[in-house]
Nucleic acid binder design. Structure first.
Length: 96
DNA sequence: GCCATGGCTAGTA
DNA sequence: GCCATGGCTAGTA
């Protein structure tokens, strides 16, 4: 199992209405500091809606990126009940 | 050698 | 705003 595959697997455990961060995902996989690598894995995510890439944001609440455009990411997150103010997640809690 | 990051410093107001 | 980090891809030999 490659690192990216483990990312996808871990990410699937993040429920609707919750978000996690690149860094925390990396740490959860025992690769603390590989946050950037996680971002890369998200970018090249093969199966779009199955793995909830849109639920991954930056450690300060900023949105990070999205393969289908940042606006799309905002839209989806809002549909899931996440509040976003000026391109930042407001009440952001991390899934353990 | 690229980034969908993150933590830390310098240095402004 | 700088730079260390880490997994990955393109593309050379």
């Amino acid at each position: 199992m490659t690192f990216s595959q483990k990312c996808y697997q871990m990410l699937k455990t993040v429920p609707c209405g919750r978000v996690t961060t690149y860094g925390d995902l990396a740490k959860a996989l025992g690769r603390s500091g590989a946050s950037r690598a996680v971002g890369r894995a998200m970018n090249t995510n093969p199966n779009a809606p199955t793995v909830p890439c849109h639920r991954v944001v930056m450690s300060d609440g900023c949105l990070g990126g999205f393969a289908f455009g940042i606006n799309k990411k905002i839209k989806i997150l809002q549909q899931e009940g996440i509040k976003i103010e000026n391109e930042k997640v407001v009440d952001f809690a991390v899934h353990s």
